[in-house]
Computed example of a mutant assay.
Amino acid sequence: MKIDRLVSIIMVLLDKERIGAQELADMFEVSPRTIYRDIDTINTAGVPIRSVPGIGGGFEIMPQYKVDKNIFSAADLSAILMGLSNLSNVIRGNELVNALAKVRSFIPADRAKDIELKASQVCIDLSPWIGNRDAQRNLDMIKTALQDYRLISFEYLAHHGIKTTRIAEPYQLVLKSGHWYFQGYCHMRHDFRLFRLSRISNLQMENETFTPRDYQRPVLDFAEMLETMQTEIKIRIHKSIMDRVLDYCTFEHFSPVDDEHYIVMFPFIENEYYFDILLSFGSRCECLEPLHIRNEMKRRIHDIATIYDK
């Protein structure tokens, strides 16, 4: 991730005093052009870095600039270590390893044990229990393409099983609701699109680079829109799926019927996604109201049964 690389570059400069662009590029597995952009970003952020030309030259932090190692509190360092450590489980690369090493260099010896303990109190494991074997490979390839501004090509499976071949400029990796996406400019659609990694196959990184265009960040918060679209339906569930139903609503939506069953006022939108949720509960869920949703569930269940009757 770029922010981790920037932190690492600052730490390296504080440690080595002067280092060349190519050496930094090799260290972080990016192009020298990317390093020059990173140096500009660091300068803009207020850390004064100058370039020394000639033999033995390179980048260095101006001598009058000092970083006090006590600038970070124990809570600050624990939070940084926690975030970087958990992120390294899913996004691999030397920049994360270097970032962790450099952040640890800020930890005073007398506080090291306490800070490391606090950093390990929360574990965020974003890898799936089971899933697409190409997921990590695709994630790593897109991460490299992001850093080097390289075009990527892939086959994409969209709604209704439609497969298309795409060429895109990657701009951002997104983790949303347990799934990885990337936001990119699609050359076929001539617009920004959010692509889900699990629907991507035959991903290739092209040799061609691109000049970044004005980036449109994806809309990721649909809370207000969903509130206007959602209605409540009444379902009757067996207690054995209560934990699964709680993924979509809260305890306040539940009313006990007997020792085995609950009535749930379930948030619902009339589309394929929500009908599939109800179907996934199987025979332990019955839609009671409204009648047209109940009838639609009956129709879908009948269609499924017809397949098995053949």
Rank of each mutant, 00 (worst) to 15 (best):
G131C: 03
C287P: 02
K239Y: 06
I200E: 08
M62E: 10
P128S: 01
A21E: 13
L175H: 07
W129R: 05
S105A: 15
V67D: 01
H261I: 00
E169L: 14
D214W: 08
N86P: 03
D309G: 04
I301A: 07
S8T: 10
I162H: 12
D309V: 08
E23C: 09
G20L: 07
I235S: 00
D140I: 04
S198R: 05
R166W: 01
L151I: 02
I304A: 06
F59W: 15
L87C: 11
Y248I: 05
D114I: 14
P212F: 12
E169S: 04
I19G: 09
T231W: 08
T44Y: 03
M1P: 12
V257F: 13
V103D: 00
S177Y: 07
L226R: 07
K118Y: 14
A109H: 11
L126K: 13
N202C: 10
F106N: 01
R104L: 08
N70A: 04
N138R: 06
E206P: 03
A112V: 10
V122P: 05
V47E: 01
S201H: 08
L100F: 04
V219A: 12
F182Q: 01
N94G: 13
L146H: 02
E296G: 09
K176A: 06
K118M: 14
I200W: 05
G57M: 11
N70Y: 11
N138Q: 11
D258Q: 04
D76K: 03
D243H: 13
F268S: 01
E29Q: 06
N295W: 05
F222L: 09
M242V: 08
P218Q: 02
I3N: 11
N98L: 15
D309Y: 09
E270T: 11
Q204S: 07
G131M: 01
A74K: 09
F210W: 08
Y274A: 11
E206S: 07
H238G: 14
I10K: 04
D4T: 06
D140P: 01
D247G: 08
L194V: 15
S8P: 06
N89D: 09
C186I: 00
D247R: 08
G56Y: 01
R104W: 07
Y36A: 14
M205R: 08
D110L: 03
D276P: 05
T209K: 09
I19P: 15
E169G: 03
S198Y: 08
R50Q: 10
Y274F: 14
K113S: 13
R217C: 14
I162M: 12
L117E: 13
K66G: 05
L6T: 00
G161D: 04
N207W: 14
V174T: 02
R150Y: 03
Q147K: 12
P212C: 11
M229I: 13
R196L: 11
V264T: 07
S88A: 15
R299F: 11
F266W: 06
D4E: 06
K113G: 08
V90E: 07
E289W: 02
